[in-house]
């Protein structure tokens, strides 16, 4: 029989970032590159144009979208407030999370209304490069916003059941902050 030697147990080091947050961070970095590529292509095409928006194409509704932008930024603030409350007592964070979901939903609904108006005015995906880029960039952002709202709704559901973990909440927050933080850049580049 061999001699059994007890090896000293090394204390397990805590990971610097939870796996969920790290995964979301990598996803967000990839998405930043995707949007940067789209914005770059848009700027090159816009620089080539003699007139922007092209002749016969409608002007984008800058003022209405400013209100929309405000709603989205407020939803980001509501989520930051939710995080502060979550640290103290998780059950108290539900209302601000729901407020963030509602404001995000408002943003997406207003975008939909704006799109209907623009299509009626003749700005379609095929009408010009202006339309193509507008629907591609803003549509892709809206798609991300819808996905993030669904994730927030799911987080709110788990929070209501008292089963939401801090790291899960942090990953959902990271996704929403990406959606919120990206929008003012898109608004500035695409609408003006």
């Amino acid at each position: 029989m061999g001699k059994v030697v007890a090896l000293p147990v090394r204390p397990r080091r805590e990971p610097l970032l939870p796996n969920g947050v790290l995964g979301m961070l990598l996803f967000v970095l990839a998405e930043i590159m995707l949007f940067a590529g789209l914005i770059s292509a848009f700027l090159v095409v816009k620089g080539l144009a003699v007139e922007w928006p092209p002749v016969g194409q409608p002007r984008l509704p800058v003022e209405e979208t400013a209100f929309n932008t405000g709603a989205l930024l407020l939803s980001g603030a509501a989520l930051a407030w939710a995080q502060a409350r979550f640290r103290r007592a998780p059950s108290t964070a539900l209302r601000p999370v729901l407020l963030a979901v509602a404001l995000g939903g408002l943003f997406v609904c207003f975008q939909g209304v704006e799109w209907v108006g623009l299509v009626r005015e003749g700005l379609t995906l095929r009408s010009s490069t202006h339309g193509s880029f507008f629907y591609l960039i803003v549509g892709l952002h809206a798609l991300h916003a819808v996905a993030a709202i669904l994730a927030l709704g799911w987080a709110a559901l788990r929070l209501a059941e008292g089963r939401l973990r801090q790291d899960t909440f942090a990953s959902v927050q990271l996704f929403w902050y990406f959606v919120v933080g990206l929008w003012p850049i898109l608004y500035w580049q695409v609408y003006f």
């Binding site: 770059s40 700027l43 090159v44 095409v45």
Partner: peptide, 19 residues
């Protein structure tokens, strides 16, 4: 692609900047 038109002078600045 957008880059194919980069030889044009009026968007050269944008092209260099975005690159």
């Amino acid at each position: 692609c957008a880059v194919c038109a980069a030889g044009e002078t009026n968007n050269r600045a944008e092209f260099i900047l975005t690159t």
